[in-house]
Amino acid sequence: MLEARLEQAQILKKVVEAIKDLVQDCNFDCNDAGIQLQAMDNSHVALVSMKLGSEGFSPYRCDRNIALGINLNSLMKVLRAAANEDLLTLKAEDQPDSLNLLFESSSQDRLSEYDIKLMDIDQEHLGIPDTEYAATITLPSAEFQRICRDLSALSESVSIEANKDGVKFACSGDIGNGSVTLRPHTNVEDEDKSTKIELTEPVNLTFSLKYLVNFCKASSLSATVRLCLSNEVPLLVEYQMGAGYLRFYLAPKIGD
């Protein structure tokens, strides 16, 4: 059986809130290492990959591999009943028809219990290979969100050009064009406000802003975001969580 308690319900709330507009139904794959999720978005241009490691739960018990097929809108309806600071315990049998969620207020004077029905989802969990990227940019997640939001007002797509001097986000639309260039810098008072660029070769790729704006819904999970780019391969947008990550992969656009 599965029994997994999160110290704060808001971690799962934020994950589901961030991906529910991309993915409707998906399997939460549970094993002794933790809970993982991998799903393509409905239009098959983006891939979501999430891991909550067992060390992020206390206690964590999962005797055998269990796939929890969940409709994310249904899960969100239930999770909205949890306060951010509530303890959240997930429970499921080995061959479950439902997932049990228990919310406990931090003062332990309120217990809420919900069951949501599970569904059979034919979805294979495939290992995504570790990739060496030509450019890895770490920046404040709020900064990335702002850039995507601002440029999406002008255009459907953004080019991301990284070289040793900085990273330039540029777009061009009917009303004009715009760009934001970030130069690497270190904020000594708050490391999370730094911009870091690791580069083995310059890259320049174009992506759909609609998807990037959607990925930025995960910004509240982490103060920083990591963008990994190589020419002609999908962009990786990664938000680190305490004991895991939420990753989005987006295929680049190509010229006609």
Partner: peptide
């Protein structure tokens, strides 16, 4: 005119 590529071929997904 931009073309949006599908993600599946990059990861050998169906």
């Amino acid at each position: 005119e931009w073309l949006q590529q599908y993600i599946a071929p990059f990861f050998n997904l169906n």
